[in-house]
Design a protein around this nucleic acid. Structure first.
Lengths: 330, 330
DNA sequence: GTGAAAGCGCTAACAC
DNA sequence: GTGTTAGCGCTTTCAC
């Protein structure tokens, strides 16, 4: 059932039918009534593909997610979908499994007019994925900062300040009297972990404490890896009185490693975690955790992208400041 | 840059260019080499919308999710996307907020050739949403059973057997000696909760225990509501020695209510929860929980839908059996 | 082995 | 106030 069919039924031209049904352009009340009635009776539905081809608009946004099972992303996705919905946009998920290759695939897919814009979440914005993005020319927004951005770039970013977050986490432990703080984060070659390490080093530096590489572990932001990294650290028998985990699941892995040696939080060491998900409150003792503003990150990502799709061509980045939520673990 | 442009550049016709680039239809090696080279040089990308319009295929699936922040769905979505990916499909999220109206909106959207099929997750498949689905005629799969299904229907379902799940949960507590078991579930007018209640009643019946309505609470499957429902129950001072929670977050709410009265698990009462998410292991004591096979549910949903999209017209439902994972709480 | 051309269903400029 | 028509960019049939 097409506009042409409705035209035949009603005796009007296809243009008039289109005007009546879309509401754009002039159409007499009488014609409109007849046409709308006929469309309803014959169960007419417009064809989204045809509309998209003709109007060059898909009303869809692609979102690259490194790890779909990480609870961090769910409140972010919630923020994104709620914001997109208001503008009649829908979100498509593209799980990238933290793979650069997949990120580039997603960007290339967008060159086929597959969607109106792309939200890129990545632990590592590097020369390669950013080059692909620039070449594509599609409206985009990054879920992390990118320092080599140019004013003419086709993307903006929303940055939850990891450096600041780590500074307040470290500062909090220092204030509580900790002096030997173990940092369990991810691969320091990657942006997020290197920024986090930077925040840690800065906060220590303010108290003239020299960071010790043996206290900086790669916990891969998940429970098993963090548990293993912590166990190895415990084997080294280095003294410690503070712990910082990359996220709440990592914190739980650390706690498990401690428990196996009959060590407990906060007696043996105080702990601060990141992300402030439900895990932080459910764990016992509950985790002091840095709230990374996931929902606001989501709404900001969506808003920023929609603006660009609507035609903004100047770069407009957003920086969100995380906040510490204190609980039993510190 | 279109196929016609490449045709002009190479001197071949648009048909030959199309054959060379799509790989369907005959094209000489020489022509193909020239054309592929020219396409690369001029940075040609096919247009997805045009292709979709012409071939009536979007390679997209819409997924209605009642509550995007519920951890139950993470692993299910993971299973869906991983399976879809293998067939070159992408998932679009449609958060329905448990609203029937939104479910129907989503179904109607699909009538516009918006996607190739729809995955519907709902707590309540009722006359209204199923009628809309039937009328739409689009390939679909439900994430719950629907008893009034007809052999000619345009949808299948994947059912994680809630009745069975509740039976094994109740049976487990009965075996441990519990005789006054509190059931905290959702609104019993809705399918999921009514099925769960049925399983509970059945298991009690096998031991000739008469269910008592005062022991069946509406906890709304979330932490706050469950805590409130449990607190109200405690006020009633009815004796109890077993607890069944609708999901892990609800279980945590129940534990909080108990803690406020200085009651503890499993000493005051044994607890079984549903969903077996990470929360169940992180909580202390950890929760015995019914694994609802979320990942398998996701893969089964996707596989079933893809088959229907590919042309299967006979109904093919799948039933998954949940399993109990024992931990400290019981 | 290659080309011409119709058409997927809609939009919008232009004509009357 | 309504109608005609040329595309959006691709696929595919049919002709040579």
């Amino acid at each position: 059932m097409t506009i042409y069919d409705i035209a035949k039924i009603t005796g009007y031209s296809s243009a008039t039918v289109a005007r009546a049904l879309s509401g754009s352009g002039y159409c007499s009340k009488k014609a409109k009534a007849t046409i709308v009635e006929a469309a309803k009776n014959s169960n007419y539905n417009y064809n989204f593909q045809a509309k998209a081809l003709r109007s060059q608009k898909t009303n869809k946004v692609l979102c690259c997610i490194p790890d779909i099972c990480n609870p961090f992303y769910f409140r972010m996705i919630d923020g994104i979908t709620k914001t997109l919905e208001k503008s009649g946009y829908l979100l498509m998920l593209y799980p990238t499994e933290k793979s650069l290759q997949k990120e580039i695939e997603a960007i290339n897919l967008c060159r086929t007019k597959f969607c109106d814009g792309i939200i890129l979440i990545s632990f590592d914005f590097c020369a390669k994925n950013v080059a692909a993005l620039r070449e594509s020319g599609i409206p985009a927004v990054l879920g992390n900062r990118y320092l080599e951005q140019k004013g003419t770039d086709n993307f903006d970013y929303v940055y939850v300040d990891h450096i600041f977050g780590m500074e307040i986490a470290t500062e909090h432990l220092l204030e509580k009297g900790c002096r030997h703080i173990v940092l369990v984060t991810g691969n320091r070659q990657k942006q997020t972990s290197s920024e986090r390490t930077e925040g840690y080093v800065r906060a220590l530096g303010r108290r003239d404490i020299r960071p010790d590489d043996r206290y900086i572990l790669n916990g891969g932001y998940d429970r098993e890896t963090s548990k293993a990294a912590m166990a190895a650290f415990l084997d080294s028998r280095l003294p410690f009185d503070g712990l910082i985990a990359g996220n709440d699941l990592s914190a739980y892995g650390i706690v498990e490693a401690l428990q196996e040696r009959h060590l407990s939080i906060p007696q043996s060491a105080r702990l601060v975690s990141f992300d402030n998900t439900d895990y932080a409150t459910i764990a016992s003792p509950s985790f002091t955790s840095i709230d990374m503003c996931q929902y606001e990150l989501g709404t900001a990502l969506a808003t920023t992208l929609l603006e660009r799709i609507a035609g903004r061509h100047v770069v407009k980045n957003t920086i969100l400041k995380p906040a510490l939520v204190q609980r039993q673990s510190s």
